[in-house]
Design a protein around this nucleic acid. Structure first.
Lengths: 146, 146
DNA sequence: GCTTGACTTTGAGCATACTCCAAGTAGTAC
DNA sequence: GTACTACTTGGAGTATGCTCAAAGTCAAGC
């Protein structure tokens, strides 16, 4: 993963470059700016957007939150607090902590489903080895087997 | 969690009961039937839907797939294969295996983000202990700290 | 000066997954 | 027979998160 920051220049001078560095499309970056998820970006004299390295890093962090289930609106709220400065630190702490708990519950859910799927895969393999052994009508993890 | 099947009667005689047993709303159950995600349910003489225990268990399994990121369309496809019988077992095996891999990648992503968030939470605690120590402009996990 | 390409803004359109509503029916309670 | 409740169908509307298109600007190359 890119916890590294080495691939990012100090100044990113175009939206296409920003798109490449974040994995977003240009349209999505403009959309995020429009809905206030990203602040109005600096423009060069010709009107084109430019970004600092820190802004790109900020977007990458946002995308982590998004990839782990946070909505754009929640992210927008979090960033609004960030812009308000250190007086909101404790509220931001609470929000991040809550999201971390959410992630923990998500992981638990995913692992449970992996157990169920693995059970079914094993069952499928048994069916493939000795077919129509319909005698034991396999009952359990959330489903009747087939 | 309910890996148990004990709370489900052999026959579920109304959509409201089915909703309660699956956690879906009645509207969502009807919607799933409409788009072909669920088969056309048996009706009682008065036209009301009824479900077997196995059908409820089937829905619960579906909801696991959904909760772990499978789309309704993918689920619909999987169920279509199930209806086609044992000749599709190997294809279903492949699909479930792929979904299991997908879940593994999701878990990894969630855990990475937990690491980043925990880093940030630690940083917030340090800021709270000795404020405006802006000397070390903390660099890393995906963001400039504040 | 004209074309090309990378950008700009604004607004409309789209995919997914519901969610709600209107109008009607069937069975029970009184 | 009237009211009430739980259902039915079909269609329309909504929220989220993009995605695309039209029309225009600006700078560089020829």
């Amino acid at each position: 993963m890119d916890i590294t920051t080495q691939d990012i220049p100090e100044t990113v001078t175009s939206i296409s470059q920003a798109a490449e560095l974040t994995g977003l499309t240009e349209d999505t970056i403009r959309y995020y700016e429009r809905i206030g998820l990203l602040p109005y970006a600096d423009r060069k004299p010709n009107g084109h957007r430019q970004y600092s390295k820190d802004q790109i890093l900020g977007i990458r962090f946002l995308l982590r939150l998004k990839a782990t289930g946070m909505t754009l609106e929640e992210m927008r709220h979090y960033l609004e607090l960030t812009r308000q400065g250190d007086s909101t630190l404790s509220e931001r702490y609470t929000l991040l902590e809550a999201h971390n708990d959410y992630i923990a519950r998500e992981i638990a859910k995913l692992q449970e489903t992996q157990d169920v799927i693995r059970y079914k895969l094993r069952h499928f393999r048994e069916l493939a080895e000795n077919p129509n052994t319909d005698a034991y009508d396999c009952e359990v993890p959330g489903d009747s087997g087939r």
